[in-house]
Amino acid sequence: MAPPAHLVDLSWPVHPGMAMFPGDPPMELRPMGSYEPDGFLSHLASLPAHSGTHVDAPGHVLPGAPMLAELPLSRFAGPGVALDLRGRPGLAVTEADLAPHLELLLALAPAFVLLHTGDEARWGQADYYSAGAHLTPSAARLLAGLAGRAGIGPETGPSIETSIETSAEAGLPGIASDTRPRPSDLLSGVRPGLSGIGMDAGSADPAGSHELPAHRALLEAGLVIVENLRGLGQLPRQGFDFFCLPLLGLDGSPVRAAALVPGAAGPGARP
């Protein structure tokens, strides 16, 4: 008999009035059918592809790079690690904030690294996007180095070994560890190596950025980026599987993100 496990919902509900990126049109619902006289209820939903909890494809910022439809479905599921970064000193997630977690990431070789920034608590506030958590370029390059494969852009992130050497030169702990991938106990056929980065914040880059260095570093390494997650505090640090299956095959798509966590759901868990 398989050990008990439970699903944790990591997505924000999609509804009119939901928080949207500045300048994006609002989410709209329009009736298409009603019980009377049509005999059924149906709606037309309209929203930008990068709305709510969503995933970015490499083609989001890189011309000619793959769109979501060109990536295998296995790229959107796999073992995850959740990093609690709520105690960091600044708004941005820096290379120094990630350094204490490198040994774990190298040992586990997860498919997804989920960054718990604490911005979930600010969802819906007027400055959620304009003053939100984000990655510094060096932090993004460090995460891109975990991909462990050739990138798709001209300036892919350094290898994780190079990133660690750079961290050591900067006074951060250097780490040597076995980087061989370790497949999930619950999923088979999921590709080895890092597939994506997720975060409970609105964007990997600060609002107003036109160069989008964090997006470019991650997407050029062939990763996907999942933004606007919630509920990361319900996850263990490791030992769970993460899912972010896209609805659309475009440059981005809303997802129903969830985690499969061993054991029974604890008291107060969101269904």
Rank of each mutant, 00 (worst) to 15 (best):
H43S: 06
H43K: 04
L44T: 12
A45P: 02
H50C: 11
H50Y: 13
G52P: 07
T53Y: 09
D56H: 15
G59Q: 12
G59N: 13
V61Y: 15
P63Y: 15
G64R: 10
G64N: 13
A65H: 13
P66K: 01
L68K: 05
A69F: 14
P72D: 14
L73R: 12
L73I: 10
F76V: 07
A77C: 11
A77S: 10
G78E: 15
P79V: 02
V81C: 07
L83P: 13
D84V: 04
R86S: 05
G87A: 11
P89I: 03
G90W: 02
A92S: 10
V93Y: 08
A96L: 00
A99C: 05
A99K: 02
A99G: 08
L104A: 11
L104C: 04
L105W: 01
L108Q: 15
A109Y: 02
A111R: 15
F112Y: 09
F112G: 05
L115F: 07
L115E: 01
L115I: 03
T117K: 00
G118Y: 01
G118Q: 03
A121M: 11
R122H: 14
W123G: 04
G124K: 03
G124A: 10
Q125W: 04
A126C: 02
D127W: 04
S130E: 15
A133F: 08
H134V: 02
L135K: 01
T136N: 12
P137T: 14
A139D: 00
A140W: 14
L142A: 04
R149I: 09
R149G: 08
A150K: 14
A150F: 02
G151F: 15
I152M: 06
E155R: 11
